[in-house]
Amino acid sequence: MIELTDQFTHLVLAPALGGSLVNWTVRASGQPLLRHSDEHAINTGLPGKLGCYPLAPWSNRIAHGGFDNPGGWLALAPNSLTDPFPIHGSAWQQAWEVTSQSEHEVVLELRCETPFAYHARQRFRLNNGELNIQLCVTHLAAQPAWHGLGLHPYLPRRPGTRLQARAGQVWKSDAAKLPTALAPVPEAWDFRQLKGLPEGLVDNGFCGWDGHCVIEQPELGYRLECQASGADYFLLYCPPGLEFFCIEPVSHPVNAHHLPGRPGLKLLEHNQSIQLNFNLKCIPHVGAGLLANTVDQ
């Protein structure tokens, strides 16, 4: 485990578990800023049980057992016991290496040959209650390939949790959780203004996003103000009855490899790169005092 601290927050990472974030908490109170990962969650060895993990060289599901690259068909096998499709790329299933570390910043790197050769770098920086995540991927194979990026944070869900995130349209999806058509955002999923999360299942992609979102957590005494770049889409996952939800900044919609025009994907030649940034700033509620009188861990 790698630990970073600033004057207000504490971050724990697990490079060997997919370059994942384990926990991010308020130092003075211990309140979770990402979904809390207990010892059992860590011992599963599964990034999907932790706080956040990287998505590269694509996000979410790909249908039809692969996709076309300029050099021909790239066959992909399912890579998760819980999904029939290849999902979330390969970076989350690799051990990452710590290449730089200081009190407030750490850099993790990965060289991977699956499903083609690429180099990935994550930089995590803490400052004044603000977490910045930078994910960059460079294509290393001789033949060009389609790339996409994303991050998969898990956020605490309490009865009063509210979300603000503007979107132009939403992808309808079928029983296999693959997109079928773009549609206007229904009222229950319209988060242009702060509102509570839907009671029913949401597992859909949204487009026309400006990269900004706010997560209000009154029971936990703070809100997160977030800004993404390199991500024109977000995925919202709200599983009913569970104490977490996900809003994932991504560069492309689900199954973009098979959508007309491959929206959001980038065809990278050898040594070309793409990058995604996500900034999450913790702001205490008035009177909460969570970021005051910080005690040392």
Rank of each mutant, 00 (worst) to 15 (best):
E105W: 01
A167Q: 05
F234M: 14
T180C: 02
Q297V: 15
N23M: 10
L197C: 08
I42W: 10
S59C: 14
H252I: 07
R158T: 14
D83R: 04
H270Q: 15
T180H: 10
Q227T: 11
I215L: 15
N69W: 11
P86Y: 01
G168A: 15
R125N: 02
E199R: 14
P186Y: 01
E248R: 03
A41G: 00
E113I: 12
A120V: 06
Q94H: 10
G241F: 07
D38Y: 13
D232V: 03
L235P: 04
S59K: 04
C238S: 11
A117R: 13
A288F: 00
C238H: 10
G168K: 12
A188G: 08
G66Y: 04
G148I: 02
V286Q: 01
E248D: 12
C136T: 13
P144I: 08
L268W: 08
G51D: 00
F116I: 10
G208A: 14
H147Q: 13
V250C: 07
E248N: 12
H88S: 05
S59L: 06
P263S: 14
E225F: 01
W96H: 07
D296K: 07
A14I: 05
A120C: 12
H104A: 14
N127W: 08
H64L: 13
F124V: 07
A288Q: 00
Y233A: 09
P198F: 10
I274S: 11
A41E: 00
S90H: 04
L50F: 11
